[in-house]
Design a protein around this nucleic acid. Structure first.
Length: 169
DNA sequence: CCACACTATTTAA
DNA sequence: TTAAATAGTGTGG
């Protein structure tokens, strides 16, 4: 898949960890970047958008802040996954089903998709996840206790998991 | 074609 | 026993 996406807005999300960057397509939140990546790409503005973007952004902001605290997100904005392939969307849907404070291995996730040997492909799909935090790709770990990788920087993965597991029941 | 955010298996020491 | 090579997978360069 190589479709480009058009964004109707690019907005900052201020948090204690820095300013995240949220990009919206007409269908919803299409991409979320960590502060480090966001600073490279300099934010744009929203202007007087009459679209639902304003409301989406409120939801996104709240969800991101909760995620950074390792708390379950009360509500999420609609997420535009049109960029993803069928396989990737299945992976992302499976990610959404992982409760806060729990982790799953790439292998188990692959197995739940009826493709027990596609663990590596699952890793690829996780890396292609356009919306980290809201789609909890950080809750997927390697089979033998390793953390695996993380597109936005492994330190985020460690931080998020640490906070979530500190709250785990 | 190759390289991966993988991993179970196999093969060698 | 432990260590290294390998196959199987979907996607993107």
């Amino acid at each position: 898949m190589k479709n480009k996406q058009t964004f109707v807005a690019t907005l900052k999300i201020k948090t204690d960890e820095g300013d995240f960057l949220a990009r919206y397509s007409p269908a919803g939140l299409a991409r979320l970047d960590f502060p480090e990546a966001a600073s490279r790409k300099s934010g744009v503005g929203s202007k007087g958008l009459a679209t639902p973007v304003r409301r989406w952004h409120e939801l996104t902001t709240r969800a991101v802040r909760l995620a950074l605290q390792g708390r379950p997100m009360a509500a999420k904005p609609p997420v535009d996954l049109s960029h993803g392939t069928a396989f990737q969307r299945k992976v992302w849907a499976a990610l959404l089903a992982i409760p806060s404070g729990q982790t799953k291995t790439y292998a188990r996730l692959a197995a739940s998709l009826k493709k027990p040997k596609a663990a590596r492909a699952v890793g690829g799909a996780c890396g292609a996840n356009p919306v980290p935090l809201l789609i909890p790709c950080h809750r997927v770990v390697a089979a033998h206790g390793g953390l695996g990788g993380f597109s936005g920087g492994l330190h985020w993965k460690r931080k998020l998991l640490g906070r979530e597991q500190a709250r785990r029941q």
